[in-house]
């Protein structure tokens, strides 16, 4: 399968934080969600792909092009929506577009105008008068107007009202229908991912926890609830994170079938894991509030 984005052993060291040799692949024509607790390294990964943060080691390939060697060609294929859209506040929307447009051979002026209309963005309005949500919409309009093959979005839905958030997700789903466009977006709102993401990549403290298809995660991972006595030495290794209470435990397991086989007929409740539960348990792990081992 042709890949839109290949990240290999990507490493970035900051004082007090290291993104540790991250690797994942996003096939062309799919949406990947990047999840993880605050400070996990999601924004750093997106910035490293864009080369606005310099990597210590590793490789990034965009549509087969090396992110450093073929930097210009690779970036021409990327559309980006950053967490804090870095626009010139003094310009009007149309002016902002005219600053960016010449850098992209594939810029479609008519499409930009129609996107502004669709997103209720008045072209005469100054950028510094836009709300966060409106600025996000502008960033998205710019990303879409040059027909990017890979769209990178850092927390794109966080400043948006529920109506536009839903519309945005539908648009993203529509975008990939051409089989050419791919989307990587980071978010805290895991319900968004359950709706649209084909792949989920999870980071924690700069480490890659997993990168798999959404169906694989939702099929294989499970939330297990049971009485305290079920939590034996033999069973505990099956769980990634465990939340205990005097009346029982709730745990996350990555192998639903194995748990089902081991706990069959012992009164445990095994449910399909939601992404927010996965993030919760993975975020809690090793922080002392839960037990269990991977």
């Amino acid at each position: 399968m042709e890949s839109a984005l290949e990240v290999r052993n990507l490493r970035k060291e900051y004082p007090g934080f290291t993104l540790q040799d991250i690797s994942f692949t996003l096939p062309r024509g799919y949406i990947m969600g990047l999840i993880g607790p605050n400070g996990a390294g999601k924004t750093t990964v997106i910035k490293l792909i864009l080369n606005i943060v310099r990597r210590n080691s590793g490789e990034v390939r965009v549509c087969g092009l090396d992110g450093l060697v073929d930097e210009t060609e690779a970036k021409a294929r990327i559309g980006f929506v950053l967490d804090e859209p870095p626009f010139y506040g003094c310009l009007r929307l149309a002016g902002m577009a005219s600053v960016v447009a010449p850098f992209y051979k594939t810029w479609d002026r008519a499409l930009f105008r129609s996107l502004c209309h669709e997103f209720d963005l008045p072209p005469r309005k100054r950028v510094n008068a836009l709300s966060r949500g409106m600025a996000m919409k502008l960033a998205l309009a710019i990303a879409l107007a040059h027909g990017a093959e890979l769209i990178l979005m850092d927390e794109p839905t966080s400043g948006l009202d529920p109506v536009f958030r839903r519309e945005l997700l539908e648009r993203l789903s529509g975008l990939i229908q051409d089989g050419r466009t791919s989307v990587l977006f980071s978010t805290h709102i895991t319900s968004d991912l359950e709706r649209v993401a084909d792949f989920i990549t999870c980071l924690r403290d700069g480490e890659l926890l997993f990168s798999a298809t959404r169906d694989e995660i939702l099929e294989n991972w499970a939330i297990v609830k049971g009485a305290p006595e079920l939590l034996t030495e033999e069973v505990q290794p099956l769980f990634i994170g465990i939340s205990r209470s005097p009346y029982g435990f709730t745990a996350l397991a990555s192998n639903k079938e194995e748990v089902r086989r081991r706990l069959a007929g012992r009164g445990a409740v095994i449910e399909r894991a939601r992404l927010d539960e996965v993030v919760f348990f993975l975020g809690q792990k090793d922080r002392g509030t839960t037990g269990g081992r991977r």
Binding site: K47, N51, I52, T72, E73, K75, F87, F103
Partner: peptide
């Protein structure tokens, strides 16, 4: 960040 994200 905007300028450095452009294809240049």
């Amino acid at each position: 960040a905007l300028v450095c994200s452009l294809p240049v």
